[in-house]
Amino acid sequence: MSTLTRLATAAMMAAGLSLGAGATGALASSGDGPHLKQPNWSFNGLFGGYDEAQLRRGWEVYSGVCKSCHPLDYMHYRNLEQIGYTADEVKEIAASFDVPDGPDEWGEMYTRPATPMDPIAHPYENDAIAKLANGGVVPPNLSVMARARDGGADYIYSLLLGYADEVPEYVLEADPNFSLPPGKSFNHYFPGHAISMPQQLFEGILEYSDGSTPSAEQMALDVTSFLQWAAEPELEDRKALGRYTLLFLIVLTGLLYAYKREIWKDAH
């Protein structure tokens, strides 16, 4: 019995170490300001997965709003088949984008409609143009955003809805000299609060093809879910395989424990 309690202590210690590391990481990143909004995401938890209809709405928000400034690197139009678009629909979506190609037989670069095999088109030809068009800041790639920020989906969602017209009291209390540089907007959740991207999501700026009401909250939920999928397209496979693997390991470890006890009877 004492061995078991020792084992439990070991496990707790390992868990304590890891939780400590994680908690400190989270602490280090949180600035002043309100806590992140935490919607009840469909992809949370051991059994979480994606809602394809929501992901398609999210793609509509991306291609209607975000697309004009933000790339989705490492993704291809063909990936959209994974969120329930048919092969023909994907072809149509791809063809609505122009992508650079070439050189042709005369040595000239040209543009052509994209095919499903093409990477999702970049909004700008290069970073210099992107900078020029966006007040000196390159709009970041969105395909890994949900992995690349502490807080992940919660952070993206909070940020999209986190704009304020005036600098709030708590910021001025912390720093009386705070003032927004020209061309920047105030955001509760952005580190330093001065964000280059103005507020994008306003009620009714687009129409959903499935007739959902395009409120700012709805669009933020949908596009954040879409970006979560863009960052972790493997999530559903991963969790499903994980459930089987854990179940299997628990059975195997149980058997090993029983067999080990049986054998060790001889030694006591």
């Binding site: 051991l46 991963r238 395989l241 994980g242 854990l246 390991l249 470890t253 090993l256």
Partner: peptide
């Protein structure tokens, strides 16, 4: 047996 426990903890992080 000890390895089994370690793998359970490892896989919990790997998959979730």
């Amino acid at each position: 047996f000890g390895l089994g426990i370690a793998l359970i903890i490892l896989c919990f992080f790997v998959f979730f």
